[in-house]
Structure formats: structure tokens, C-alpha cells
Amino acid sequence: MRVVVTDYNFEDLGIEREVFESIGAEVVGADAGTEAEVREAAEGADALLNQYAPVGPAAFDAAPDLRAVGRYGVGVDTVDLDAATERGVWVLNVPSYCEDEVSTHTLSLLLACERQVARFDSAIEDGDWDWKIGRPIFRQRGRTLGLAGFGKIPQRLARKASTLGLDVIAYDPYVDREELAEHDVEKVAFDGLLERSDAISVHTPLTDETRGLFDREAFAAMDEESVIVNTARGAVIDVEALADALEAGEIRGAGLDVLPEEPPDESPLVGREDVVLTPHVGWYSEESIVELRRTVAEDVARVLEGEAPENPVNDLGPE
């Protein structure tokens, strides 16, 4: 059996090899970045492990014996689910591994924006020691944090934010009011989220419904002293609209761990004093990276051994 890792930025594939050698499977690492490169790498594969490269119909056609594609992460927008399902290929993810890391990173970005950490640091490097550079800065207790989406990560964030005295509201059409109330979170409509939040944290998946959810109209509806944080999917925010909103003073700042294009190429957000950027690192800790890799590799191994996967994304019906 042959397992191809389409792309990865780990130091090695030792964890994967340990898992697959136990079932007699060979692990081959590739450096694919395009659909054509993924197709070439996938030839003859029984399974794929995938990080960022696009896995489209051509890859499935190049590997007629393919049985599973395992995605390093929660989201699977790199994989064509319809093409996989049509060909009877399991798509697997890691739905739970970094809730602590992402919720903590989100809070870090929020506080960096609210307390103007990056701006003060940059000013001091330039020889400017002046607390007034960061004005205005507001006390967090009593302010309102709005959550767009209310899955496991924002649930943990809500608990952490409450220790700072933040009031938490959430927009999520798929979570009922009673469940939100169990977390001491008020359910609001999207308009209410925009109008009432002093800070908004984005936690939605990337779907047709959420792509560009935060657009020019959304930013215009937000308070001019509000900030937005995104540790979910970059394309949920229209970055051109965000840059224009910041330039026009419609909102005060942004903290982003994800962008539509990673790494960004001439993004209007890079270099702005009112934007804090991190390189899609919210998921990372030494513990989480091991958990991520081992979990998805072991699930792919289950499929190759004829067992049912634990974390399927698509439905292939009974085995």
C-alpha cells in the first residue's frame, strides 16, 4: 500500500511513517502546490494525506485505487468532497485537536488589538516612548464580544473572555437560543452582532453562505471603535473591504491569523499599524501538532485496514 502526503511543512514524516509501517504501508512525501502537481503525486496512491494543496477530480482520476484522503485540520475546503464521494473515497479530518490553542490565540489577537501592543512595540523600536500613540484604549470589563459561529472553539473563547468581564453575544443560525444560554451567551441576529459588538471574533466554516460574510455593508454597520478578529477561514472576510473600512475609520482595528491568500501577495492589510497579522499559527502547540498528525494518520490506516473511519466528513453509506 502507498500513502502519499501531498504537501506538508513539518520537519519530517516520522509520525506518519510510524503509523503506516505498522500496517505495511509505504509513506511518500510530495511537495505539491497545484492541482496538476497533486494529480502527479497521487498516481498509484491508496491514500492521501493533505495539508494545503488542492485535491480535485484529476487527483482522484489519477489514483483509481484511492480509498481515503485525510486532511490535516478541521476544515476540508482543500478537497473536492463531491468528487471524492462520487468515487467512493473517504474524506477524513481532525475535528477536535486545537480548541485550547485557537481560542487562546484568538484572545491574544483581541488583546493585542485592544491594547495596541504591536503599535507600541513598533513605536519604541523607532525611539518613540509615548503612551498616547495607542489612544483610544478601552477597559475590557463591560464591553461586548460578538462571536460569528458558536462551535467548540468559540465556546472555549467565551469562557476565557468572561474572565475578563466581557459580555458575550453570538450569531449562529444553527445553534438554538437555549444552548447558547447554557454558556451564558446571548443569541443575536447578524445585524445585532454588527451593531452591538465592540469586538467581533470570526469562527464560521468557509461555505457559500459565509464567503465574504464580512463585506463593505457589514463593516459600515459596525461601531467605529470596534475591532474584528479572524482565526477561522480567511475568505469569510472581504479583505479589500476591510482595508477600506480601516482607512475610512469605520472600524478601529483587526487581528487576523488567516487570509484568503496565504502567504499574502501585496495584501492591503500588510504593514498597517491598525492590523495585527500572524501566519495561520493559531492551531499550533507542540502537543497539538503531534495530536493532529497522529489522529488523521491513524484514521486513514483504519480505512486501509478495512475498518470504518472515526472522523469521516462525507457519507459513503454502509461499508
Rank of each mutant, 00 (worst) to 15 (best):
R272T: 07
T104R: 14
A243L: 03
L206T: 12
V227Q: 07
V202I: 12
A123R: 10
A221L: 04
V74R: 11
V4C: 13
A301L: 01
N314L: 08
G165C: 09
R39L: 03
L111S: 00
G44M: 07
R252D: 09
L292E: 01
A243Y: 06
P268Y: 02
I251V: 11
E11G: 12
V239E: 15
D184A: 12
S22I: 05
E240F: 03
V270L: 11
E247D: 14
P312A: 00
A84Q: 11
A248F: 00
G234V: 00
R293Y: 09
L213N: 03
E262C: 02
S162F: 01
D12W: 06
D215S: 15
E262V: 03
G24A: 08
D65N: 15
I153M: 03
A221T: 09
A181C: 04
I169H: 03
A32M: 08
A161L: 08
A84R: 08
S267V: 00
F219C: 13
G234H: 00
A170C: 09
E43W: 00
D65S: 14
R177G: 10
V175H: 01
A118T: 10
I15M: 14
W90C: 14
A199L: 04
M222C: 11
C98R: 05
P312C: 02
A36R: 14
P268E: 12
D12I: 11
R139Y: 10
E250S: 14
W129D: 04
D265A: 13
A161W: 01
G253Y: 04
Y52I: 15
I200N: 01
D65A: 14
T6I: 13
K132T: 15
I169M: 06
R293L: 12
E182H: 11
T207Y: 10
A243R: 03
V74A: 10
A42I: 09
S226N: 06
L194Y: 07
G56M: 12
P54H: 11
E287W: 02
L246N: 10
E179P: 06
D7V: 04
L107Q: 02
I133G: 09
L213G: 03
L157N: 10
G255D: 12
L164Q: 08
G44R: 04
V5R: 05
K152L: 12
G234F: 00
L157K: 05
G255T: 03
P263L: 01
I15K: 13
Y171S: 03
R87Y: 08
E114G: 12
K132W: 02
P263K: 05
A25G: 07
I124H: 06
A123K: 12
E16P: 09
A63G: 13
R233L: 03
E125Y: 01
H203R: 08
A161E: 01
A308H: 02
A62R: 10
L304V: 09
L92W: 06
P64R: 08
D184I: 02
L304Y: 11
V185K: 01
N314I: 01
G317A: 01
D223M: 02
G142V: 07
A58E: 15
D172F: 02
G234S: 01
